[in-house]
Amino acid sequence: MSFSSDDAADKAIEDVFEQHVDNFIDQHVDNFIDQQINKPKRRAYIERHREQGHEDLWNDYFSENPTYPPEMFRRRFRMTRPLLLSIVDRLSNEVPYFRQRPNAHGRYGLSALQKCNAAIRMLAYGQSGDTYDEYLRLGESTALLCLEKFNDAIIKLFGDEYLRKPTPAYLQRLLDIGEVRGFPGMIGSIDCMHWEWKNCPRSWRGQYTRGHGKPTIVLEAVASQDLWIWHAFFGLPGTLNDINVLDRSQVFSDIIQGRAPKVNITVNGHNYRMAYYLMDGIYPKWSTFIQSIPLPQGLKAEIFAEKQESARKDVERAFGVLQSRFAIVKNPALLWDKEKI
């Protein structure tokens, strides 16, 4: 009886001990699982040796004896080397993002040349962000951020000069060119271009898709013979035609508000005080629009239609050159945010 009572007591103590151990283990395992689930995941760090990327880039294009000649530089970067260096210098001095600064360990980050080259190559070739990871040594997310910062900086630093409306001197130059071409008072041609939006949100596809096509965003532009796009209106849905876009555009805001430049021209004995644009037949018949003759009758009408249709191709030629120089506009837009596009 004594042996059996001792065994029962030991068994009870052992059961209580095992119960406490199981509860302790279960509690700590549950806490560990909760911590792992709620713990923020860290990005996988890849040592890309960004210093080597900057050195290779400098030796290939920017050293005293570069690997590639200036004509290849011009073709690949869509600009000359002095122009690119001046842009990089100004960005690194005036935009904090493009300044090369050391981190907490004293190691310097990506150089301004690497960031600008990533953005320019994405604009020029329209490829994904990780295409040049092996050469420039920066990841896809960093390349996309460089593209966004580069565009914002270019608009901020150079927009007032290169996106401005024609100055009086340049307006007179446009009028002189138009008169030489047989259109006195003409200051450019106007038209619209559609840019495909691949990642258009599904809830927006109905208003950005025309027929059975793909979602597009409309760009309205006015261009001169030298391919200068001095008016650009972008962002409207692709379901709108040229007339609907014109109704929302600001191209005639100066005329409506009385700030239009003063122009005095005489055509067929009639005096006109407003400049005009060349366009195709979809636009309304306004005094500031000169259209072609659909079915010209007679030699005079045929010559006018031929000259008008030839001169109004300036804006379409500007669209073509823009897409050939910067393939990001030719290829479907890959971004999700329309403001960034």
Rank of each mutant, 00 (worst) to 15 (best):
K41E: 04
L57N: 06
R78D: 00
I37P: 01
F32I: 12
F98A: 03
V95Y: 02
R90D: 02
L85E: 15
Y97G: 07
N38V: 05
V88K: 05
S86Q: 13
M79W: 01
G106R: 12
W58N: 13
E47T: 10
Q19G: 12
F32K: 10
D60N: 13
R74G: 01
M79R: 00
L84H: 03
D56Y: 09
R107F: 07
Q114C: 12
F32N: 11
I46T: 01
P102C: 13
P70Q: 01
P82Q: 13
L84N: 00
Q114E: 15
L110K: 06
T80W: 11
F24I: 10
Y108L: 13
I33V: 11
G109D: 03
N93D: 15
R42L: 08
Y108F: 15
N103C: 02
P69T: 02
D34P: 04
I37R: 05
P66H: 01
A104I: 13
H49R: 08
R48Q: 00
D22Y: 10
I33R: 04
E18N: 14
N93V: 12
L83I: 02
E55D: 05
L57A: 09
Y97R: 14
R50C: 11
F32W: 14
Q36A: 08
P70F: 01
P96G: 05
V95P: 04
D34V: 05
R50M: 10
R107V: 08
G106A: 11
S63A: 04
Y97H: 14
P96D: 00
D56Q: 10
S86M: 03
R76M: 08
F98T: 01
E47N: 07
Y97E: 02
E71L: 06
R42H: 09
D89C: 09
D26I: 11
E18I: 12
R101H: 11
P102T: 04
